[in-house]
Design a protein around this nucleic acid. Structure first.
Lengths: 350, 350
DNA sequence: TATTGAAAATAAAACGTTTCACTTTTTTGG
DNA sequence: CCAAAAAAGTGAAACGTTTTATTTTCAATA
């Protein structure tokens, strides 16, 4: 059906070894190259990846395993990683597991069966035990965005706890006392960290004056725009004391913005808003949003480089964890309650 | 390194053929099965996909090739297709080409090299010539969402022209005369069709009274939330005659909604809004949005079934095109200009 | 208890590459 | 122009499965 080295051999007369060299960058006489090239073109020949993989045990392919293909964060990182590896001759296999740990295991096996040379994953399962299967097969794994409990590998995360803390301190310094967090569920590593940082910073300051759990109202929901929208609407409709909302990721931020706009609650005048993730649309809105920005490029690049090192040097060094800092980007979505003028304007707007 | 049939043979004593049968559903004695099963468990054995693929020329893998991994439409379809094939024992290889025709060709070759058994694609290149490479290798291709000019294959599209027309007629019937479309660029099949349908319906009715190009102001931009937002803001700020906006896909609809909310322009009172795609967040907003909904499940299912048929029966029938209807979902985002009361309310709101 | 036919198991030949030890050809420099 | 070294090319043996024709085993029947 499709042509093989033998067909090229028949046409050119060169041996299989020589032809193999041609496809693997060995040094050949110019004429030889040209002859083979011609045959390849004539036959519309393509190397059989199965045969090649069977012998070489290399696929020049990286496996990417993420929870949801619909999340902006994951797909943004994904694209950068794909680009990085494309430039270095690798292709990428993308799997999403629908945030389902069973499918996650399945997908990991799929990637291993495809003989990927390495794996970069945003893990769904918090234990991470399934990843052992990769190490058993000597396939390096790099974790991005989330740490796991029972598996040791190169990891790139941001300092989520500090990010939450910074947000809290910022709001506190502007006089906010009754605040709420709209967050994903606490079994997601990043959400737990961000919430803890935020709540801790608040409770440390004024333990006595607050009554609510941890002094901060924390709403947990799914990581979708809609969930954020619904949570924010609920919050803003039923809790009149809240002066500021901290949203723990992009989707929740966007949902909250939509809810506020719909309820006619202006930020910062009505309720202050502190967001997360510097994604295009949020960056474009006005008034601009104050938020914690993640270094997406750096995240992708760090993860890619870590994996590349493993691919090139194997396990000669023990697993590294890189923790990247977030950046506070100040917009105009948080009002200063200490500022008299601001307070009056606030009062009028209500 | 990793174990093979030979290892299983050493442990169990059965021949390679028998072991092969075990993994491919041949009939075996109960004891034999149990013996092999035990060995497999003990060795943590996994079938080598390369060796298997080399012989069987099947990978049980479907290739999915889409323009952007960030677009909701594509990823929604994608997930449904992945799910469909997972249930039938196939895995999926996902490639996005960043809406770049060069990368599209590259990615197609990648999929072919991975010996996918079939391909489902939302094509980027409008010619579609690159897809010939698949047919040369006898790999069936199914096109979704967009037709191409120079390649004949099973295709599933929605009736985009009618969708545009229906939207136009709806607005027209409500008395809207000065309308605008926010659309992607016309080189995208769906955008061209939707715009044409919309514009044609309008111009047919009242050729003489309109002065603008095609009687409808068409704004072309990128298919992102931000682009829609910017275009809508521009439109609403600079063109006071417009009474209604038709957005040609989800991202543009969302961007437009955000722009309107930001400018304090309420729909339907201020400007009417006609959207596209019944995605969660849009469905959740209030007032509810009037829009054309695509049958996402049916699209995915039709495409999957078409491919499955090809996989099972080869090219025994000539390429089919399935054209699916869209549904008008009526919300409260379009005002009836013929309705006196409505007009008054409209007037007050301004 | 033979006999028979179906069911189960086997052995060996692919599949299309890469690799490695080897031979042949070309280049280099005295 | 020759010897030696370097470069280019060769041939055969893997890699781990599936497949096919063949042999063995097993039960059921006469």
């Amino acid at each position: 059906m499709s042509s093989t080295y033998k067909d090229i051999q028949r046409i050119t007369g060169y041996s299989l070894g020589t032809i193999s060299k041609y496809f693997n960058g060995g040094s050949l006489r110019a004429k030889t190259k040209k002859d083979i090239e011609a045959a390849v073109a004539r036959l519309d020949y393509r190397v059989n990846g199965f045969a090649r993989g069977l012998k070489s045990r290399k696929s020049m392919t990286i496996g990417l395993l993420i929870p949801e293909i619909n999340g902006i964060f994951a797909t943004t990182i994904l694209r950068l990683i794909v680009q990085f590896f494309r430039q270095r001759g690798y292709s990428c296999l993308i799997c999403d597991c629908d945030s389902d740990t069973n499918i996650e295991v399945e997908s990991l096996d799929f990637l291993l069966d495809k003989m990927v040379d390495g794996i970069i994953t945003i893990p769904t399962d918090t234990s991470g035990k399934h990843l052992e299967r990769a190490h058993t097969r000597n396939i390096p794994v790099v974790l991005v965005d989330r740490k796991v409990d029972d598996f040791d590998a190169d990891t790139v995360v941001i300092d989520n706890y500090s990010a939450g803390k910074t947000a809290a301190e910022y709001l506190r310094d502007f006089g906010h006392v009754n605040v709420a967090v709209i967050s994903g569920t606490q079994d997601v590593y990043t959400m737990k960290q961000r919430c803890s940082g935020f709540v801790d910073a608040f409770s440390q300051l004024r333990k006595s004056t607050f009554t609510k759990k941890n002094n901060v109202r924390v709403m947990e929901t799914n990581l979708t725009v809609e969930s954020g929208y619904i949570a924010a609407k609920d919050l803003l409709t039923n809790d009149n004391n809240i002066t500021a909302i901290f949203c723990a990721n992009y989707e929740l931020t966007l949902g909250t913005i939509m809810a506020m706009k719909e309820l006619g609650i202006k930020y910062p005048a009505g309720t202050s808003l502190f967001g997360f993730d510097n994604i295009e649309i949020v960056r474009t809105l006005s008034p601009s949003i104050t938020l914690m920005a993640q270094p997406m490029e750096l995240l992708a690049q760090s993860a890619s480089n870590l994996l590349l090192e493993r691919l090139e040097h194997g396990s000669i060094f023990s697993p590294k964890t890189i923790m990247l800092d977030t950046t506070l980007i100040e917009g105009n979505s948080v009002s200063n309650l200490f500022d008299k003028a601001n307070q009056m304007k606030d009062g009028l707007a209500r």
